[in-house]
């Protein structure tokens, strides 16, 4: 029996009618991202590209967190699997010279099935648990994959990482790679948006709010959770694939638990309850990181204080402020 029969078109229409601030927020952000290269200097392009890649990583994480109600502390494993897949394909080609654009695109896409497979294996076990147990098991698997990459020197070059990665000549200039990243991330975000508005997306919210009710209505909760886990891992892998050619190298830290914390922080800052929240979080997190580290080496202290302030004063994230402001305005309050 298909999930579709469980959720009718009118239910979707009802949900669409409800104002979601993510659409206007995404449109405004898209315009800003398109205009960003007008700011002179290469640095802004580097920051912008990083915001987009990590933003997609965080958006994929939020499928698990915001929409499914679980926290994964091992999501970087799939980001890293994607990054290494693309890097391992590109590195010999780049070294030999003559990397074509088509080959490059295929190498990027190759990351998706590898990350999906990784997420299928990890997810198979994780979706049996919820809450803190889900979080801990995902972290354990993340660290397991990290150590495999870290230790398997003959294949992954271990702690040395893989160096000398490059986009093909056509995409090599920072502004072109920035726009290339923008297009890939925008397409992926559109697809993610579609997923969260599909019957499948509503089933996720259904089981997030009450798994028992979802089950006695006839939905296979674990299967839906597993499919979602694989989807989240696939998009994280795509984000990871973009990383290597951008940073010119990949290293095992991309899979570590510190990297897994990044999308958690981004979702917290932007607002996990909103589709666009993690992207807004990436702008704040990555933007702050890029500028603060010019003036101080105490980046963890800085982001720690930001997180502390968010948790204490804005638990719904930055978008909840915009949301509250718009709702008050619609009610005609000053």
């Amino acid at each position: 029996m298909s999930q579709k029969s469980l959720l009718s078109a009118s239910l979707l229409a009802a949900a669409r009618d409800r104002l979601d601030i993510s659409i206007p927020v995404l449109l405004v952000l898209a315009v800003l991202f398109v205009l960003l290269p007008l700011i002179p200097g290469e640095f802004i392009l580097v920051v912008g590209t990083e915001i987009l890649i990590l933003g997609l990583f965080a958006l994929s994480f939020n499928l698990i967190h915001g929409f499914m109600g679980q926290i994964s502390f091992g999501h970087a494993a799939f980001f890293g699997l994607g990054a290494y897949t693309t890097a391992l394909i590109l590195q010999p080609l780049t070294a030999a010279g003559g990397l074509g654009t088509i080959t490059f695109l295929l190498a990027i896409l190759a990351a998706v099935p590898v990350s999906a497979l990784g997420a299928l294996v990890v997810g198979y076990f994780c979706v049996r648990l919820t809450g803190i147990y889900f979080a801990m098991l995902s972290m354990a698997f993340g660290e397991l994959i990290f150590y495999v990459v870290f230790s398997w020197y003959s294949f992954t070059k271990g702690d040395d990482g893989i160096q000398g990665l490059m986009p093909p000549p056509l995409l090599k200039s920072p502004v072109v790679y920035y726009y290339f990243t923008f297009v890939v991330v925008a397409l992926a975000a559109a697809l993610l948006w579609r997923i969260t508005r599909s019957p499948f997306g509503y089933t996720l919210r259904l089981l997030r709010d009450n798994p028992a009710r979802t089950a006695f209505l006839g939905i296979d909760v674990r299967r839906v959770m597993l499919v979602n886990f694989v989807l989240a891992g696939s998009f994280a892998g795509l984000a990871g694939a973009l990383w290597g050619p951008f940073a010119r190298s990949v290293s095992p830290t991309l899979l570590g638990w510190a990297q897994s914390g990044v999308p958690v922080f981004m979702s917290l800052i932007g607002g996990a309850g909103y589709f666009a929240g993690p992207l807004v979080g990436s702008i704040v997190y990555t933007g702050l990181n890029s500028y603060v580290t010019r003036f101080t080496i105490y980046w963890p202290l800085t982001i720690g204080l930001v997180i502390l302030a968010m948790v204490l004063f804005l638990p719904g994230g930055l978008l909840s402020v915009v949301d509250g402001w718009l709702k008050a305005k619609r009610r005609g309050e000053p």
Binding site: M1, S5, L6, L7, S8, S10, L11, A14, L206, L217, G218
Partner: peptide
Amino acid sequence: DNLEIAVK
């Protein structure tokens, strides 16, 4: 919607 969601 509460009714439609449960069609099986």
